[in-house]
């Protein structure tokens, strides 16, 4: 079984937010609109976070793309009272929308703040519904459940189906999430962390590699490569 992981090279990332947009278009997260966005209720599974420090002219700004870390030791799972959120055998941390009772314990427990609560049923202007991704995994989520990045789990299923249809064995390189495929500077890498020959596992062992809040012991499977 592969253990899926991602590497984001901050030296190559130019904060263009294409990942953010690709994620929304792939995973059917609804537009929040001005009112709800003003309350911080925008659902973007893959936001780029700004950190601006220092005073003019010595300003240091960091722009950090942040998907779900798909931790090996996730804090969100431990607090879920109904086992709606779980880690599957390939290391993906997923939510069963049918089980989720919307208690939002996980949104608080997650140190990366990547879990989004549906305060209301998603709304699109009627015309815009035409472009929604028809895959079953990404059908609009109901009111009152928590959702998050799945590493585009529907693409994993699609890749397996295609491999099967073509009569070949599924390879780890057959599957990438939407954000990785669209990354304008090729700053994102994706693959099997357990395969020592895969590019991601090599990069994850690079001296530039670090993980967010590593000291918390969550063991994220998203690695960043330092800038410069």
């Amino acid at each position: 079984m592969p253990r899926w992981g991602m590497v984001i090279d901050l030296d190559k990332c130019f904060a263009c937010q294409s990942c953010t947009a690709a994620c929304r278009m792939e995973n059917n997260t609804p537009p929040a609109g001005k009112d709800q966005a003003g309350m911080g209720r925008t659902i973007l599974w893959n936001e780029v976070l700004p950190f601006v420090e220092g005073e003019y002219p010595n300003v240091k700004a960091t722009l950090l793309p942040r998907p779900c870390m798909h931790c090996d030791n996730p804090a969100c799972i431990k607090v879920c009272p109904v086992q709606a959120t779980y880690k599957n055998e390939e290391g993906l941390v997923l939510v069963d929308y049918n089980r989720c009772i919307g208690c939002r314990m996980c949104t608080v427990a997650c140190p990366y703040a990547v879990r989004y609560f549906n305060w209301y049923a998603p709304e699109w202007p009627e015309d815009l519904k035409a472009h929604l991704n028809p895959e079953p995994e990404v059908q609009p989520r109901p009111k009152g459940v928590v959702e998050k990045c799945t590493f585009c789990v529907q693409r994993l299923r699609q890749a397996r189906e295609t491999a099967e249809a073509e009569g070949r064995t599924f390879q780890a390189t057959d599957y990438v999430p939407a954000c990785v495929q669209t990354c304008t500077a090729h700053a994102r890498y994706f693959g099997d962390l357990d395969d020592p020959d895969s590019l991601v596992s090599k990069l994850a062992h690079s001296p530039r590699a670090f993980r967010m809040f590593e000291e918390l012991g969550t063991q994220p499977k998203v690695f960043y490569l330092k800038q410069g």
């Binding site: 278009m25 472009h131 669209t182």
Partner: peptide, 14 residues
């Protein structure tokens, strides 16, 4: 690759 404007071009179309 595709930038965020290309990604959201379907929001333009529809």
């Amino acid at each position: 690759v595709c930038c965020l404007k290309g990604q959201t071009s379907l929001e333009v179309l529809y």
